[in-house]
Design a protein around this nucleic acid. Structure first.
Ligand SMILES: [Mn+2]
Ligand SMILES: [Mn+2]
Ligand SMILES: [Zn+2]
Ligand SMILES: [Zn+2]
Lengths: 147, 147
DNA sequence: AGTGCACTTGCAACCGTATTGCAACTGGGT
DNA sequence: ACCCAGTTGCAATACGGTTGCAAGTGCACT
């Protein structure tokens, strides 16, 4: 009963992993973030507490493997991690928008394809993820708000 | 008039690049391919002719820069190149489907989003590219054609 | 056809992101 | 309190891609 039951620690334990300080910090950090973070961003935050880059990578991957995080690659050669909201087992992921100019990632909640597009893609395979890329509103307008 | 005018060489020259054997071979290879090729795949083909990895990389990038090729990243940490069909200047790209199991890439011709999805994404920015990921029909059916 | 130079190439060194081998350490069940 | 599978730190490694530089060559201009 050392220091009262920590619910987040329990979540980690229930997933089959040991609730180490590094894992707890990683999970909390990502749960506070509003957008996916890269390994670099995460490990930089954890470096203060003496956590090694490799450990950060392993924990990010481990937590993703058990479903507490989601690991995605949005097309700029960098893995990003985000906390899975809700029950890990029914996590289906959601679409993302990556700004090719500034690298900002936005989580979208329900991008849908037209019926025709769905029919076309069904001939290829089963879609599990949709990624949109382009210029975010911050980067798009080189001129003012009005042309 | 050494060996009759080569139209592909001329295309390369018109783009502002010198028509070297390596560039000619690269462009022809990609024009014959039905799907985007990675640098590894291209340079492996060209290695027989004594073309260096770095040269292959530079030429792929150069040809992409002048619009004869398109360079895309489909979410598996690898650049892929494909020949641009039609006039390079009005190349707008097209959607792709990447099988996360076998890495196969399929070119799609016109994936469209529903009006609602378009409205939602417009709040974020301007979409320039759509990428779908999932399991291709070859990898999806672990069981037979019928369950 | 010959000349000259900017562009291109080969080679090796390098970079950034991510992974791995291994010995030391530790969470947590007993 | 004990113990060991799971975890960590550190260094080495893997991999995709880029870069510096000296040698080579496409091609515009005689
Ligand atoms: Mn997201
Ligand atoms: Mn394509
Ligand atoms: Zn942006
Ligand atoms: Zn497949």
């Amino acid at each position: 009963m050392t220091a009262a039951n920590d619910p987040v620690k329990d979540e980690i334990r229930r997933s089959g992993l040991r609730a180490t300080p590094a894992r707890l910090a990683t999970l909390l950090l990502l749960r506070e973030s509003t957008s996916p973070l890269t390994h670099a961003e995460v490990s930089q935050q954890l470096a203060d507490r003496g956590i090694d880059r490799a450990t950060a990578f392993r924990n990010l991957n481990d937590l993703a493997e058990v479903g507490l995080l989601r690991r995605t690659e949005l097309g700029d050669h960098v893995w990003r991690f985000e906390a899975v909201r809700g029950q890990p087992q029914d996590d289906t992921g959601h679409p993302h928008f990556l700004c090719v100019d500034c690298g900002t990632v936005s989580c979208l909640d329900d991008v849908k394809l037209t019926a025709g597009s769905l029919r076309q893609s069904a001939k290829i395979g089963e879609i599990t993820e949709i990624l949109l890329r382009g210029h975010c509103n911050g980067c798009g307008d080189t001129s003012a708000t009005r042309q």
